[in-house]
Every structure is written in C-alpha cells, then in structure tokens.
C-alpha cells in the first residue's frame, strides 16, 4: 500500500515503524508544497487525518487538549477562541481560508518552522507536545521541543498526537508583522499570555530566531515590576517601554529576503510594548 490510512493511533505507529521512509500526511499544506516542487520524492505515505486519537478538542481540568489533526479553521472558533484566544488570533493569520481549512496544528508543530504561526502561542502559554512512537509516549514541554530551524525532538517513527495548552485566567494576544494584510509569512510575530493566578507573563516569538523563542528574562522582570490584582495587572508606562527592549533582546534575528535583523528586532520591541499594553492597564 503506497498510501496507508490508519484508523487508530496504534496502527499509525505500526505503519511508521514498518516503513521508516514513509511521509506523514496531515493537512498536506507543508508536505505537498515540497512534493509539487520535486523536493520530496514519496515512496509511501501515512495519512493520519482519520486517526481518532488525533482529532477533537477536549478540556481536561485547566488544560485544553487539542488533537494534532485539528485544523486552523477549527482553532479560530470556539472552544479555542474562548479558552485560548491568542491561539485563535494566530490561527486567523495562517495562509488563506483554504489553507486554514486543511492545515493542522500538529503539522505546524511537526514542521517546527520558526515562522509557524501557532508556535509562539504555545511558547507563551508553556504548552506541551504529546508525542507517540513505537511503544513510547512522551509529553515534551514546548521549551524543550525545538532543536533548530525546522528541527525538533520528534524522531522518525513518531507522531505528534496533541498539544496540551494551559487554560489561563488573564489576557492574551498574538501579533504578526508581514508586508501584506493577508496570506503572509511572518516577518516577526509575538504571542503574549498573562497568567493572573501564577502572576506570570509569557512571551513567544516567531521568525526572529532559528526556532520559536521565549523571553524568560523579560517576562520575569516585568512580572516582578507589575502590580498584580485578582482581576488584572498594571504595568507602569516606562516599564512597558523597557519590557519591549528586553523582549527584543531575546530575539536572535537574521537578515533574509523577508526582512532585516535590525527591523525584526525593532518590530519585536514595538509588538511587545503594544501587546503588554493591551493585556494590562
């Protein structure tokens, strides 16, 4: 069988074990670009879209578990829009409506592009990636997941099963800079999440380093400077500006055809300021 369409996670993993050269197909929006361009010869495909363990969104206590086969179109809507608004905002910026109807969050995580739109949100929220392979199941904190540009700890024969995203009380947002008002790859992007319970601020950055990045130093600094209340958080104006600089300091951008390192760092500082202002008062 050139195309294997497993009906369970177990059979999907068995197929990947049996055929280590097989390509994993979910929404196809990354894989098929390479195939069409002749960069990815296919010998065998495991199409995981119908694996029941990979579908569905369920709330498990303070965590929402989003199946890897969930599309960005689904992420734009409830329950994700209500529980994790930053993820819904990020989803809306992915490609076109047609792409959002096909592309999946699992694919975004597996491809691990520094420009993957969902990824800064997962970083800001401290999400975890559920991975299954062979006889092994593991839950990898997003901070330990990426190892380089389009590289991760995901091994051959493994599948992203779901992402576990904390449901936080507090404001969050996602900002993305591109030179077109729709359908654009991020020149720089930033996700922010305020956690009123833990009194923490989380930041995730996209397209400004070899992997999606966090800004732990800036976040702990601002958390220590903020005035926390049960229903919100206040940050002084001058601290907002300094936060922008500190977040920009966490970026490791390069010059490429989409933008310069200098602009990217600047954009990060502006986005960080605006994001923090929107999420505080």
């Amino acid at each position: 069988m050139a195309v294997i369409v497993p009906e369970s996670l177990e059979s999907a993993l068995a197929a990947l074990t049996a055929y280590p050269d097989a390509a994993v197909l979910a929404g196809g929006t990354d894989l098929m670009v390479e195939v069409n361009d002749g960069r990815r010869p296919l010998t065998r495909v495991v199409a995981v879209g119908r694996v029941p363990e990979l579908t569905g969104i369920r709330v498990d206590g303070a965590t929402v578990v989003i199946g890897a086969a969930t599309t960005f179109a689904q992420l734009e809507r409830d329950p994700v829009a209500e529980l994790v608004p930053a993820l819904a905002y990020a989803a809306r910026t992915v490609g076109s409506p047609q792409i959002r109807n096909a592309a999946t969050i699992g694919g975004n995580v597996a491809t691990a592009s520094p420009a993957g739109d969902a990824l800064p949100v997962l970083v800001a929220l401290g999400a975890s990636v559920e991975i299954a392979g062979g006889n092994r199941r593991r839950l990898v904190p997003i901070a330990d997941y990426f190892t380089g540009p389009k590289r991760s700890v995901l091994d051959a024969g493994e599948l992203v099963v779901a992402v576990q995203v904390p449901v936080l009380r507090g404001a969050q947002d996602y900002l993305k800079v591109g030179v077109r008002n729709a359908m654009v790859i991020a020149v720089a992007s930033l996700a922010i999440a305020v956690d009123l319970e833990a009194r923490r601020v989380g930041i995730g950055l996209g397209s400004v380093g070899p992997t999606p990045l966090a800004a732990p130093e800036a976040c702990s600094w601002v958390a220590s400077r903020a005035r926390w209340r049960s229903d919100g958080v206040e940050v002084a104006d001058e601290d907002v500006v300094e936060f922008g600089e500190r977040v920009a300091g966490a970026a490791r951008p390069i010059d490429d055809h989409r933008g310069t390192a200098r602009y990217r760092r600047h954009a990060v500082s502006v986005m960080a300021r605006r994001a923090l202002r929107r999420c505080t008062r």
Partner: peptide
C-alpha cells in the same frame, strides 16, 4: 496553496486541490 485558483470542495470544505494528495 498561495493563489487559490485550484479551489475545490473536499467533503464540504474549501481547499486548494494542489495541496491534497490525490491518493489520500
């Protein structure tokens, strides 16, 4: 998947046919 000229419905969802693996 950038131009939309190949838009079709798969089941009831609008997608780019160029990014659908036919055999799947």
């Amino acid at each position: 998947g950038e131009c939309g000229s190949c838009s079709v419905f798969v089941d009831t969802t609008l997608v780019c046919a160029c990014l659908v693996l036919a055999a799947a």
